Computed example of a mutant assay.
Amino acid sequence: MKKIFPLLFSFLGVFSFSQQVVSLETIFNDKISIRALEVYDNKVWYSGTDSKFGFVDIKNPQEQKQIKLSEKKLQFRTLAQNKDAFYAINIESPAEFFKISKKDLTFKIVFRDTVKTAFYDALHFVNNELAYTFSDADKDNHLKLAVFKNGKWSNFKNNISLNEGEAAFAASNTNIASSKKYLWIATGGKASRILRMNLKNENIEVFNTPFVQGESSQGMYSIDFYDDKFGVAVGGDYTKQADNINNIATTNDGGKTWRVQASGKNAGYTTCVKIKPGSKGKEIISVGDQHISYSSDFGKTWKKISDEKGFFVCQWIDGNTIVFAGKDKISIMELKL
Rank of each mutant, 00 (worst) to 15 (best):
H291N: 04
K327T: 07
S306D: 04
T209P: 07
V273D: 00
K72W: 06
K116T: 05
P94G: 05
N82C: 08
D224W: 01
K149Y: 03
T114G: 10
A168M: 00
D307M: 02
V206M: 03
N42S: 05
G281I: 07
E205H: 03
K240H: 14
K99D: 03
T257D: 01
N163F: 09
I322M: 10
S178R: 00
F55I: 01
D289A: 05
A249K: 07
F9M: 00
T187G: 06
K43C: 07
N159L: 01
A95K: 02
A191Y: 08
S293H: 07
Q75I: 14
I285Q: 06
K52S: 13
I322K: 05
E334M: 13
E164M: 14
T117R: 11
I285H: 04
M333I: 03
R112Q: 15
K190P: 02
D237R: 02
A233P: 02
E38Y: 06
W302R: 03
Y132H: 10
T301N: 11
F169W: 06
F119N: 13
I284F: 05
K309W: 08
Y294S: 00
D30E: 15
G13N: 07
E63Y: 12
E38S: 14
S93L: 09
Y40F: 14
F17G: 07
K327N: 14
F225I: 02
R196M: 13
W316P: 00
S286C: 09
R193P: 12
I185V: 11
D243W: 13
S47E: 04
M333K: 13
K83F: 08
D228G: 09
Q75N: 12
G214C: 00
Q241L: 06
G188E: 10
N42Y: 14
Q81S: 15
